[in-house]
């Protein structure tokens, strides 16, 4: 549905986007992750025709964005990182105006505006001026405005940055709903957990280059990691004495065992840990196991490993976003 090939953007000597290529399949949510300044917005701006690429090709729905931007925009819905609706107009007027920009007739645009206001829980605020909306409401109306002409591809630039938890949850549910309706979604975010939860595939961008891309399990599998299993038993830390820990380590060569402050026991090994022998080990000693769970690395761990960017950088970006 979307194809980006060898895309580069330079500003003088500075290369904002450095020869990136990726494809987005129809009906998929594609996450574009990176810290502020990584090249996310430069990429999205080139894809929507708000910025010219230095080199490279972009097609959306088979339409060359560089050559036929008007046709391409007709099938795109665009949600910028900051709301760009009109403060002087109310919610309903804003939606109707956006529909008119896509050439929709009066009856059609008013019906669609009413439908979207209801769908986004803004029916009661339809006649309120946009400037009186809360941040979450503003973001929801901006997304509604991007959907007014039923686009095939939706570009979402940091859709949940700086808004309240409930609105973020509603927006995430809406994104999933749109995917189910077959809308292709390009999502830029620096909320890694959001990408992990929503995206079919993810690309990591750092310093203008795509460092890795794939499905979340593929990305997790691409990084070598130790196998860790956490056991919750009926014993407390004192009961799980050092002898038991030593015995467990001796019985399962190559594994390291430690007791965590939350009374759980964690076993770490470079090889996969077979569960049955460990369970039998506990059973033989009269220890009941209530929970045994493999602790996998998070997408954030994978991001840090692949990009070399400390997760605190992303956290700072989140805080900046929250203050916006």
């Amino acid at each position: 549905m979307v194809k980006v090939t060898n895309l580069t953007k330079t500003y003088g000597d500075f290369t904002a986007v450095d020869n990136i290529s990726f494809e987005i399949r129809k009906g998929e949510i594609f996450g574009f992750l990176g810290p502020n300044g990584a090249g996310k917005t430069s990429t999205i701006n080139m894809m929507i025709g708000l910025s010219r690429s230095t080199t490279g090709e972009i097609t959306v729905g088979g339409i060359d964005v560089k050559k036929q931007i008007k046709r391409a925009r007709a099938i795109m819905g665009i949600v910028p990182d900051e709301s760009n609706l009109y403060n002087e107009m109310d919610g309903f007027e804003n939606l109707c105006f956006c529909a008119a920009l896509y050439g929709m007739r009066k009856n059609e645009r008013e019906a669609k505006a009413r439908l979207l206001l209801e769908r986004f829980g803004l029916k009661g605020a339809g006649k309120r001026p946009f400037k009186a909306y809360s941040k979450g409401m503003r973001r929801k109306l901006t997304i509604a405005a991007a959907l007014i002409h039923s686009p095939q591809v939706l570009f979402l630039d940091e859709p949940t940055t700086g808004i309240d938890v409930e609105s973020s949850r509603q927006i995430r549910e809406m994104i999933v709903g749109l995917k189910q309706q077959g809308v292709t979604i390009f999502l830029t975010t620096h909320y890694i957990e959001e990408a992990e939860r929503l995206c079919d595939r993810v690309a990591f961008i750092a310093d203008g280059q795509i460092v890795a891309s794939g499905t979340v399990p593929e990305l997790m599998g691409s990084v070598a990691h130790e196998h860790t299993i956490r056991f919750v038993t009926d014993r407390n830390a004192a009961d799980l004495a050092t002898e038991l820990v030593a015995e467990l380590q001796a019985g399962f060569a190559g594994s390291k065992v430690e007791v965590r402050p939350d009374q759980s026991l964690v076993m770490v090994s470079e090889r996969r840990i077979p569960l049955l022998p460990v369970m039998e080990f506990f059973h033989d000693r009269g220890i009941n196991v209530y929970e045994a769970r493999e602790l996998r690395p998070s997408l954030e761990d994978v991001f840090v490993e692949l990009t070399g960017i400390d997760s605190s950088v992303l956290k700072k970006d989140k805080e900046k976003g929250g203050r916006r």
Binding site: I48, G49, L50, K70, R71, R73, A74, I78, P80, E82, S83, N84, L85, Y86, N87, C98, L101, Y102, G103, A145
Partner: peptide, 14 residues
């Protein structure tokens, strides 16, 4: 300055 002009630039019109 309010970025609403961007909406016009992004519309499928010449």
């Amino acid at each position: 300055s309010g970025r609403s002009f961007e909406r016009l630039l992004l519309a499928p019109i010449s």
